[in-house]
Design a protein around this nucleic acid. Sequence first.
RNA 1: GGGCGUGUAGCACAGCUGGAUAAUGCACCGGCCUCCUAAGCCGGAGAUCGCGGGUUCGAAUCCUGCCGCGCCCGCCA
Length: 588
Amino acid sequence: MNAMHALKQHVQPLVEEALSELGGDPALVERLLQPAREADQGDLSLPCFPFAKTLGKAPVAIAEAMAATIKPHPSVLEIHAVNGYLNIRVDPSWLATKLLSDGLDNGMERTPRTVLIEHTSANPNGPFHVGRARNAILGDTLVRLHRLWGNEVTAEYYVDDMGKQVAVLAWALEHLDEAAVDELLADREGGNPLWSGKPDHQRVRWYQAAQRLRKESEEAANIETAIGELVHASEHGDESVLASFENAYQPVLDGMLETLARLGITYDRFTKESVFVTNGDVAQLMEELGALEINGVAENGAQFLDLGARGLKGKTEFFYRRGDGSSLYATRDIAYHRWKWSKCNELINVLGEDHKLQAQQVGLTLEELGERRPEVMFYSFIKLPEGKMSTRRGNVVFMDDLLEEAREQAAAVVTDLRPEYDEGTVNTIAEAVGTSAVRFNIINVSPEKGFTFRWEDALSFESGSAPFIMYSHTRACSIQKRVHDLGVQALPSPPVPTVDAMPEGLVHLLRTLAVRDDCLEKVIREHRPHLFAEYLLQLSNAFNAFYRDCHVMESNEVNMFYFAVSELARLTMKSGMEALGIVPLTTM
RNA sequence: GGGCGUGUAGCACAGCUGGAUAAUGCACCGGCCUCCUAAGCCGGAGAUCGCGGGUUCGAAUCCUGCCGCGCCCGCCA
């Protein structure tokens, strides 16, 4: 469907030729000839200002001269010189023919890449709140977008199954009972009773109770020692301790995954951090690091790399080995990355902005070892209007609660709009609308931007939201169903009308369909899913204009060309929605 | 203090490898259901692009200084 790319291939030589005749440098055309910023001005546009000096002519005159001399081509409808710009407008008939013959398959020669995307990897110690879930939603969307682009993707969750957080949980489950936990957390608001049986919500109370004891009780020092011993044992690969950790966290992780599954998020593989300790990779790695030129040793025998020598600013010492010889989280992460590289030819991590420094350290160390550094999509945290999200202070929105609220609100809207629907239908639609709206609300903003969560935005079902896209899609589905019911089959290459017979909404839709691959390509290259969300909004909008201007059916007569365009748009919307995790309902 | 990121209409957000009148949604004002689902469509109003310098034919975009906000600167994870 890369019709705009094809257009440029046709047009560029003609523009270069015209420019050469005037004495300009044709080598500049490739870069300068780009999609027009102003949609009403054309499809491709060449600013003529850079040629003014060498040609000794005004840009306006250059553009006019080129417009007059450029050779015609079937793909080009018209060429105008405006204010020093050469504006080229695609012939919509040519475009329609091209789009319909290419179909969803964009016909570009691409070798699919093997991509490993690690995302979420949240500590399994409690339920997702909206802030932690941003990682999973962005990561899963990236996975889906890569699949749409034709890449082979493995989505991976790195399970932090050792270290302090799990140790605290395991300790709590071992040493506290229900009554003790209740007492320790007595001053807290009770959570939503809906989740009282969900293990992530249950067990996080044990974790929180233990956190209190660690800070506030008289035995704090003893507890700290006990937990320290557990951590130490896990870092040395003690199997019984690791097994007790797993018993502690696995139900929590299952509960967390249940929440994500509701959002359509699943993983192909879970890799446990402890694996790299028990299989010897970490020991081997530390040995190699110790032999590096930039290795340093502290007084107590701890070892670090001097990454300042490799351009790292700020704190330059990167410790990878403690004085007692055990590894650190980042060390294991490096071992994990080497393993990941053996499984793919492209590696992407989704990380919170708090991991930027560590990602630098891991990346530089990998390069020092002769490996490539992974690509990273960083995202900023989600705040609440009241400030930073914090479970401890109760300033938190749980994903489970948000999804429930979203479903209820959506159900209210459906019941209001479609009173004839039965309860089952309402629930199906409400669940789809609710989860899709929540996802879209997070995908829609650029990852590096701080984000303030507001209920009214998350639950907005109007223009600029997932339900808007979903609704446009159901219109296309409705058309398909009606045509199908008439017993009419789509034609592979229907007669394409001339430009004069094409309403504005149709032309706009064709041009929007034509730029999908350019958008997707950029999204994949730059890890910026929000641009595709933006595109899908535009496409839905364009479809609505087409729907307004072009009636596929007039008194049971099917316009085969309109139907073909409608179907192409429907399938493009559907695949795009799936790539964003929006549920493509056929009716709503 | 140092490093990284961010600042665009009342609110939210796009545009940032320099290019024409800064896009979109919410909220606000007005219009459209004898016609494929009005969760829609059309029109209107609303912006000193944080502030000051610089580079350029041209700056929201690049450079620089300042200001606000966020994150990081553990032999934690």
